[in-house]
């Protein structure tokens, strides 16, 4: 059943997101073509210059907006899909399917995670039209290698793979669980469901920020300022980062349990 739910969740999410990817690639190619064909347009005068500027601006704006939409829009689509499927009209169908609440949640999390991953990949790939022909692959790999080295030295000097794995889990599932938690808790306040969701979000922010702040302060306090070298700083920051990620993952796990509990025992769909 999980496979079937996943299939329909992916279809439901994909019908908004996949066209967005097409717009992103299309506009990236259009920007590159514009630069290739009309790059010298800046030298032209009067009406021609105005047309070049206008056309270039429109294409660039579309490209920029589609980048923003594909990165952040995926979360909006995930939130709308969750609300419509389980907390609104469509809940009358989906919640009467012979599957457990866990299966609904896991299916939605997996479908959402796949699209978050795809969005990140599509974002990176959308730079291809600009790179091809202008920059050589070894140069890119060299820059990426240097960036990675700096990050590794500063934040990942210890437990690098553990931190990266936990970060990936948090990135793919954490925000989704937070979205599900807020919407589900919000429906506990009849007639004020949006306000309820907003209050749940505020509660999450206050709790998570205050305790992660305490973690960070405690970590920095242990840092010996007298021996202030990169290795010591890197080690301290790695520790703070690892503790913060674990702390956030615990919060997301608790929010998943609360979401599941409300769905199972306090469900009151509109």
């Amino acid at each position: 059943m999980l496979g079937k739910l996943f299939k329909y969740d992916l279809k439901s999410l994909g019908r908004f997101i996949f066209p967005l990817y097409a717009v992103l690639f299309g506009s990236a190619i259009a920007v590159r073509l514009f630069l290739e064909l009309f790059g010298s347009g800046a030298d032209s005068q009067g009406a021609a210059s105005f047309v070049y500027t206008l056309l270039g601006s429109v294409i660039a704006i579309v490209y920029f907006l589609s980048i923003v939409a594909s990165i952040f829009g995926v979360y909006v689509v995930i939130a709308i899909n969750y609300h419509k499927s389980l907390m609104s009209d469509r809940g009358y169908f989906y919640l009467t399917l012979p599957v457990s609440h866990d299966m609904h949640l896991i299916s939605k999390l997996l479908a959402g995670a796949l699209l978050i991953l795809l969005s990140a990949a599509v974002f990176v790939l959308s730079f291809l039209p600009f790179i091809i022909g202008n920059v050589q692959l070894p140069e890119i790999l060299d820059v990426l290698g240097k960036v990675w080295e700096t990050i590794r030295e500063l934040f990942l000097s210890k437990n690098a793979w553990l931190i990266l794995t936990l970060l990936a889990i948090g990135y793919l599932f954490g925000i989704q669980i937070l979205i599900f938690f807020c919407i589900t808790v919000g429906q506990l306040i009849p007639n004020h469901r949006v306000l309820g969701a907003f209050l749940a979000f505020i509660a999450h922010m206050i709790l998570s920020r205050s305790i992660s702040g305490i973690f960070a302060a405690a970590g920095l306090e242990r840092l010996d300022i007298e021996i202030f070298d990169m290795a010591t700083v890197g080690e301290a920051l790695s520790g703070i980062l690892l503790r913060s990620i674990i702390y956030y993952l615990i919060i997301y796990a608790v929010e998943y349990v609360i979401t599941r509990f409300v769905m199972k025992h306090k469900l009151n769909i509109e």
Binding site: D89, Y92, T96, P98
Partner: peptide, 21 residues
Amino acid sequence: PGVNSKKVISYLPERCALPDW
């Protein structure tokens, strides 16, 4: 009400609940 009851109940809600797309 749970997974087992949903296997044996066929429900028609009073509103349109199917994915309209």
